[in-house]
Amino acid sequence: RATLEGFERFKNKQGLLENVEGWNFLDWVAGWDTGIPPTALEGSNAALNWQLVYGYKLATDLESKIGEPELAQLWQRRAKELSKIITKKFWDNEQGLFADDLAKQHYSEHSQILAILSGFLSKEKEQEAFRALISNKNLSQTSYYFKHYLFEVYRKFGRADLIFEKLKDWDIHFELGLKTTLEEPEPSRSDCHGWASHPLFHAYASILGIRPGSISYKTIEIKPLLANLENVRAKVIHPKGLIEIKIAKFEQVLNAKITLPENTNGQLVLANTVYPLNAGENILENIA
């Protein structure tokens, strides 16, 4: 709360973040000075402003779940206000995406990603930003760490195929004989940087789709995005035991065996169909 509140003093008369003190690192991107996005030091940058909106969104969700509706309303109001200003100032109608700077000279994947994840775009602009994200080759590209957020966008749009395609960027680790992940693409300052290990998270949370269905993991949601995978097996640690999954896919039909810990329940989500899951063994056959 104090961190979010602290950004208020860096908002200019227009309501945008401007000249925020400290190291405004966003990602290791070629052409960005020490990881700082364009115009962040001498003005406003869209990605940094969308990052604050995304923070407001997460705070809104958390405050709601812990029983602080008034604070949830505060963060939501600030998110709506800032998102409207960012869209008005940084949206490029001609190109159908967000610029990084007010002069619309710089463009990045980062601004599109954070705008989409904020949840405050209209459906039309969300679709346009996503199209630009996956098709515009002139955008500044995300490096290893920020691809976590890129994968979150791919998950939002149900595009596991794009996750698998981008995972090829990690192949260099095998070629170099590394057993830990690089900080950034070669030449890298560090050969052991945890922030590039998020494919381990996404293997379970995005491809298998196992995530908490409610606060404190009281319920479990399983929303797999298998792409071309035909057989998957996994065990995931839960506070009350193990979640075990076995899925076999033949064409568009699935057979699944899902075991949940005692005193839990959840749901399997496939396309627009929800299948309730109970504690213990759940057998689902010939489901689409």
Rank of each mutant, 00 (worst) to 15 (best):
E5M: 05
F7S: 07
F7V: 10
F7E: 08
E18H: 14
V20Y: 09
E21H: 05
G22R: 12
F25L: 01
F25V: 03
F25R: 07
A30L: 07
G31V: 09
G31N: 09
G35Y: 05
P37L: 04
P38R: 01
E42P: 10
A46C: 15
A46T: 07
A46R: 11
N49H: 09
W50C: 00
L52Y: 00
Y54L: 14
S64L: 13
I66W: 04
E70A: 12
A72Y: 08
Q73R: 11
L74P: 04
E81H: 15
E81K: 15
S83F: 05
T87Q: 03
F90D: 03
D92N: 14
E94H: 07
Q95T: 09
Q95F: 14
A103D: 12
Q105V: 05
Y107C: 03
S108W: 06
L117S: 09
L121A: 10
K125H: 13
K125N: 13
Q127V: 06
E128W: 09
A129M: 07
A129G: 12
F130E: 02
S135Y: 05
K137P: 02
K137A: 04
S140C: 02
T142W: 01
F146H: 11
K147D: 13
Y149I: 00
L150D: 08
E152G: 05
E152L: 13
G158E: 14
R159Y: 00
A160K: 02
K166H: 15
W170C: 10
W170S: 11
H173Q: 00
L178D: 01
K179V: 12
T180F: 10
T181W: 00
D191V: 08
H202Q: 05
I207W: 06
L208C: 06
T219F: 07
I220S: 06
N228G: 01
N228T: 03
E230M: 10
N231R: 14
V236Y: 06
V236N: 02
I237K: 13
P239W: 06
L242H: 04
I243D: 04
E244A: 07
K246I: 05
A248E: 14
K249T: 07
K249M: 01
E251M: 14
A256D: 04
L260A: 04
E262G: 11
E262R: 02
N263K: 09
V269T: 14
V274L: 03
V274P: 07
Y275F: 15
P276R: 02
L277F: 02
A279M: 00
G280V: 07
G280Y: 02
G280T: 08
E285I: 02
